[in-house]
Simulated scan of single mutants.
Amino acid sequence: MKKRWIGLVVVALVGAATAVYFLKPVAGPERDLTLVGDATRGDYVMRLAGCVACHTDAAAGGIELAGGAGLETAFGTFVPPNITSDPKAGIGTWTLEQFSDALSNGMGPQGHLYPAFPYENYALMSDQDVVDLYAALMKTQPSPAPAAESSVPFPFNVRLIMAGWKNLFFSPRRFEPEAGKDEVYNRGKYLAMGPAHCVACHTPRNALGALEWDRAFAGSPGGTGGKAPPLTREALVAEGYDVAMLAQTLKDGFTPGFDVLGGPMGEVIADSTSFWTDEDLNAVATYLMAE
């Protein structure tokens, strides 16, 4: 009987320790949110970060930023929400602190956010970019129409399980320039790994939907991350790209083989990269084509 009680106590202690580990908060460095936001610059950050492409259902004639088309994954269909300044359907009542927490730590007013929202990448963003983006979104035209509901089955609809996922796979940090590389390369790396989150789409994911960082830009065969080609230097060179051609493709969608990119990448070009400065297009191309 005594051994049985000891066994139960051990199991209880192990269970409690496991729960503490998997439910503990995951947060990155504190941000300086006293910075003054520039809404005009934030409009550009919005294009860098792909907000319009993801949060607008253009194919259905949806209002800009009022909710995107559903993203189908192995865990359910996630619908990008309304992020206009509407106080009910959108994020008009969010404080800068709440907005920053969502981008930096994957925590929204409703609880843990799913990594279908690429907060792993947005966490790398600079404090100024976050503050400027918030200023821009707060000045958008409010849309009172709520986005469609996501369709996520049990148990994935229990947001609390995301605490465990974060403790396993999420290590929020800020971008740090790579030593020995110039400003153009590091700007491109910041964009591709951070706000533009190229790595999120063009990298395979494991069975739990986490990015396989050791295979960054190796391409996604489908499934949770969707299907996307590799963006390694070797793959790009094989397709006929150099820095100038890759930058041009990101601007107008025309490939070295005289094709036009469509599908999700076509949307990204139409609503995001075609708005980038030539300097940023060149920076991303330089980073991806680097040896």
Rank of each mutant, 00 (worst) to 15 (best):
G108L: 01
F156P: 10
Y241W: 12
N186C: 14
L160P: 06
A49D: 02
L211K: 02
L281S: 11
G76H: 09
T95N: 06
N167H: 10
D127P: 11
G90A: 04
S104G: 15
D32R: 13
L103Q: 09
K2H: 14
P264H: 02
A285N: 10
L250K: 02
A102H: 08
E183K: 11
D278H: 06
L133K: 09
R187C: 09
G240Q: 07
M107L: 12
T224L: 05
T34E: 12
S220N: 14
P221A: 14
L48E: 04
A74I: 07
L137Y: 00
A123K: 04
T140L: 06
A59F: 15
G111R: 05
P204N: 03
P118L: 02
D214N: 14
W213M: 04
A283Q: 04
L191I: 12
A210R: 00
A17M: 13
V11P: 05
Y44C: 01
H202F: 13
P118F: 05
D132S: 08
A39Y: 05
P177H: 12
A192H: 07
S85K: 06
E64C: 04
A228G: 10
A69C: 02
N282F: 03
A17Y: 13
G62N: 07
Q110S: 11
Q141A: 11
V237P: 12
V36W: 00
K166E: 09
N121R: 12
Y287R: 09
E183H: 06
Q141N: 08
A136G: 10
V268T: 15
A270W: 07
V260A: 09
A49Q: 01
F275N: 14
M162N: 04
T140S: 14
V184S: 10
R174H: 08
D86Q: 10
W213R: 01
I63Q: 06
I63L: 03
R173K: 15
A58Y: 15
P142A: 06
D86P: 10
V45S: 06
F169K: 05
E149C: 13
M125Y: 05
A12G: 15
A39M: 10
V79E: 06
P118N: 03
L35H: 09
P109Y: 01
R233Y: 05
N121A: 15
V184F: 11
I6Q: 14
G68N: 09
G223A: 07
N157W: 03
V199K: 01
D242H: 13
L33W: 13
G164F: 01
T277Q: 06
Q128C: 09
A49G: 10
G68T: 12
A270V: 10
T224H: 14
A218V: 07
P195F: 00
